[in-house]
Simulated scan of single mutants.
Amino acid sequence: MASASHPYLSGNENRQWYAGLKDDDNAYIQAIGFVPKQYPAQTVIVNQGDESNRIFIVESGWGCISHDLAGGQRQILDFALKGDIVMPQSYSGVAGETFVAQTELSVFEGSGKKFFLALANSPRIASLCLETLILQRALVAQHLTNVGRRSALARTAHLLLELKTRLDRTGAVTHKGFACPLTQYDLADALGLTPIHVNRMLRELRERGLLEFRQGYVRILDDAGVRRFAEFDKRYVDN
């Protein structure tokens, strides 16, 4: 497990990805040039279409990954949380997504090319990267199902339950719920809804006694009930 002296991999010590890493792997990641950086809230770290060869490991805060449209609209693809690895660039080196600091964001940042070359020298780092890709694919599958097939009410509940499960792995969830910096505009861009529609869905979830989202805090009112309603199976996040 990563130690405090190797912060590059301490962003989420509960993740299985990091449990198998040894000191020589941590030293190797430092040797390939990952450095700590901090970005103020709402900073655009990588812009879609820019040439980028950077990889980020989130140490603290929330990031937002989105695909931007010419008319100024965006589809939020995912939120980058503590311990997540963000790889916004495509194989050609051009960023296919925009990566923004949703809150003040601390990351460890390094060269994508050097990171991928490191995979050949460390099976455990290669395993970490593979686990990241598997999780990202599972998240994308659920997000597509949300937008394409789930009702507006179910998809709203499902996304908030997913965030809760991911945050729980970092120790950021209490028995009552979790702090959430997202606005209704952010949720709308993630869910394919309008902000007004999101407001109605949150109100209905609260009135049904399932969950509530007030003043930047999500509180689960009926854990079993909301999971059943949203058809939420946390194994795609936990595995």
Rank of each mutant, 00 (worst) to 15 (best):
P40I: 00
Y18W: 15
T145W: 12
L153T: 07
A154V: 06
D68A: 14
L182Q: 04
I76A: 02
P181Y: 11
A138Q: 04
A138G: 11
N239A: 14
A190L: 00
I134F: 08
Q16S: 12
V44L: 07
P195Y: 10
Y39V: 11
D23R: 14
L153N: 09
N53G: 09
Y8Q: 11
Y18S: 13
P181M: 12
H197L: 08
N53T: 06
H197S: 15
D50Q: 09
F79R: 00
A80Q: 02
R74P: 06
R203L: 10
D23G: 06
L105V: 00
A120R: 14
G209A: 05
E109D: 02
G71T: 01
L187E: 01
L211I: 08
S66T: 10
P123V: 07
V237D: 12
A31F: 07
F115D: 06
I29P: 03
R124C: 03
L119S: 01
K176V: 14
N199S: 15
S122Y: 09
T132W: 07
S92N: 08
L21V: 01
T174G: 07
M87L: 11
A27M: 13
T43H: 05
N146G: 06
A31E: 10
L205P: 00
D68H: 13
Y236N: 08
D24V: 02
F116K: 10
A188K: 03
L167W: 08
E13W: 11
I45C: 06
R214M: 02
A95S: 09
E204T: 12
N12Y: 07
N53I: 05
A154N: 04
F229T: 02
F34T: 03
F79H: 09
G171Q: 11
V140W: 13
V198A: 12
R200Q: 13
Q38T: 14
L130Y: 12
L153G: 10
T103W: 08
D78K: 05
R228T: 15
L144D: 15
K22Y: 13
L119V: 07
G192P: 07
G112T: 09
A2M: 05
V173A: 04
L139M: 12
H197I: 09
A120C: 15
